[in-house]
Computed example of a mutant assay.
Amino acid sequence: MNHKLFFHSLNKQTTIEIIYMAEQQDFTCRKIIVKTIHSDRITAYCHLRRQIRIFLIENILAAAPLNPYRKTDDDYLTII
């Protein structure tokens, strides 16, 4: 995992999006602002839960800058 995006979020206090695998192997898309970075985890404000949360780096499957043009999570859905 490239940690540059985590450091950018930490230094600029910008929101990033992550795909996270929870303990029960549930996958969630989270919008977070990184508060601290450790070797195995990050502490971040989670917009979904509206509180500070701890995310294990090994469970972060993808990370990207927040797309300001996407209005809702429904934009990810495609009807075939």
Results as ranks from 00 to 15, higher is better:
K71Y: 09
Q51M: 14
R50D: 11
S39T: 15
M1W: 01
L77F: 11
E17T: 06
H3S: 13
D73V: 08
T78S: 10
L56E: 14
N59A: 00
A63T: 02
I37A: 04
T15N: 07
H38Y: 12
L48I: 12
I80Y: 13
S9K: 06
T78Q: 12
H3E: 15
I60P: 15
I19Q: 08
D74S: 12
F6E: 04
I37G: 02
E23K: 14
I42T: 07
I37V: 15
A64D: 10
M21Q: 14
I54G: 02
R53G: 07
I42A: 01
L77M: 08
N59G: 01
E17I: 07
Y76F: 15
K35L: 13
T28V: 10
T43V: 15
L5M: 12
H8M: 06
I60A: 09
I37F: 02
A63K: 04
R30F: 08
H38E: 15
K71T: 15
A64V: 10
K4W: 02
I33F: 05
L56P: 09
I32G: 04
F6R: 01
M21E: 15
C46A: 02
I18R: 01
I54K: 13
H38S: 15
R49Y: 14
Q24N: 15
Q25L: 13
C46T: 07
N59L: 01
F27C: 04
E17R: 07
I42D: 04
E17Y: 05
F55V: 01
K31M: 06
Y76D: 12
V34S: 04
D40E: 14
Q13K: 14
K31V: 00
A63G: 05
N67S: 13
A63N: 08
Q51L: 01
L10P: 10
E58A: 11
S9G: 09
I16N: 04
R30H: 15
F55E: 03
L56C: 05
F7C: 00
T78N: 09
T78C: 12
F27D: 00
Q24I: 09
K12P: 02
F7A: 03
I54H: 14
T15D: 06
I79K: 11
C46F: 06
C46N: 13
S9T: 11
I37P: 08
D26G: 02
I37Q: 00
Y20A: 00
K12W: 00
